[in-house]
Amino acid sequence: MSGMQELYLSWKNLTRTVPEEMANISSLIELDVPYNHLKGHVPLRGVFANMTGFNFTENGELCGGAPQFRLPQCPVARYGSHSNWPLHIMAPILGIVLISAILLAIYLCYKRNSRQTKATAPDILDASNYQRVSYAELAKATNGFADPNLIGVGKFGSVYLGALPLNDNGTLESVPVAVKVLDLQDIPVGMRGIANVRGFELKPNYRLDRWLHPTLEAVKNVGSLTAFQRLNIAVDIAAVLHYLHSNCVPPIIHCDLKPGNVLLNKDMMACIGDFGLVKLLLDPGIHDTMN
């Protein structure tokens, strides 16, 4: 009907609103729709902007339009009522409220569990809380610290790949470990009385810095970290630091946190290593200041 010039529809028992698309009929010069049941606002654009040959009388619920139509003004929507709020306004508000409620619930559960964990946290200085492994067992696990088992050399010693037997519920299994042999000539004097050989759980995905700054060959072989993995790693690190600061007895300050000291296990879970520079907060007053 793009060429329509006149349209007469009085007394047709019409309902609903005036179609917005009619504003695009540029040829329309006469529109007569009185004595119907139309409602809502009359368009203001296109042919409805300034035409005087349009008759909308006796449609009790029509409003707005050009002044020539002499229709009542449309009521302003009252946004104080939630039922009149547009969906594009309500949806973000409801989303924010829901997310805030979830975060609050997580925080409250976290605080409660934190208090419970802190109350039962073992003393890290108590040697009975750790598994004891003899030098002979570590030497056997690494084939006598053989060169083929050497997987890294650090500032204070060398690291060897090994496998320790683990008897769990009667089942004999082999657990891969990384064994660090300290160089007594280079480590601080205060550490020489601790041990010259230490065993750790093996982290097969290496250090975090290898993933953050990979070589071209590494990217081609193993890919790169996804945004989701990066987020999980950040959460893991935060959880470890919170445990060290708030749940250990005494509290521990790592003092050397960097990507090179963050290790990733087979499931890409982040673990903090290299505790050579840690500080133990033996003074309760210092711990209270931190909290």
Rank of each mutant, 00 (worst) to 15 (best):
R78G: 02
S128M: 01
S83K: 13
A101G: 14
L103M: 11
P122L: 04
K111M: 09
G95N: 02
R112L: 09
D147R: 14
T120V: 15
R115H: 07
P67R: 05
A146L: 05
I93C: 06
C63K: 04
R70A: 10
T117S: 13
Q68P: 00
I106Y: 07
I89M: 13
N143V: 05
R115C: 02
H88V: 13
A77E: 08
Y130S: 05
G80T: 08
D123Y: 00
A121C: 06
P67I: 00
I89C: 03
S81Q: 12
S100N: 12
S114I: 09
N84A: 07
S114K: 13
A127R: 06
L62T: 11
V76Y: 01
L104V: 07
Y79M: 09
I124E: 04
Q73A: 15
A127D: 02
S100K: 04
M90V: 09
A101V: 15
Y110M: 09
N129V: 01
T142P: 06
S128R: 05
A77T: 15
A127H: 03
F69L: 09
G95A: 15
S134H: 08
A119Y: 00
A121T: 11
T142Y: 12
R70S: 12
M90L: 10
A136P: 04
Y107N: 04
A141T: 11
I93H: 07
N143L: 09
W85G: 00
S83Y: 05
P122G: 06
I102P: 07
K140E: 14
D123A: 08
F145N: 10
I99C: 13
H82G: 02
R132E: 04
P75E: 03
L104T: 14
Q116S: 10
Y110A: 02
N113C: 08
Y79F: 13
A119M: 12
N143T: 11
V76P: 03
R70L: 06
A136L: 12
V133M: 06
A91I: 11
K140A: 15
P72G: 07
S134W: 01
A66E: 05
L103I: 14
S81I: 13
Q131G: 10
L94M: 13
A127E: 07
R112E: 07
A141D: 07
L94P: 00
Q68Y: 01
M90F: 03
G95F: 10
R132S: 06
L98R: 04
I106A: 01
P75C: 03
R78E: 06
L138P: 00
G95E: 00
K118N: 13
N84R: 11
A146H: 12
I124F: 04
R115S: 11
A146S: 15
I99N: 00
L104D: 01
C63G: 01
L103K: 02
I96M: 14
A77W: 03
P92W: 04
W85Q: 01
C74A: 06
I89R: 14
D147N: 13
P92H: 03
P122V: 08
W85T: 01
L104C: 05
P72H: 05
H88Q: 07
W85C: 00
Y110G: 07
K118C: 08
I124C: 04
D147V: 10
I93K: 03
E137I: 09
N129P: 02
A119H: 10
L98S: 14
A136H: 12
I93P: 01
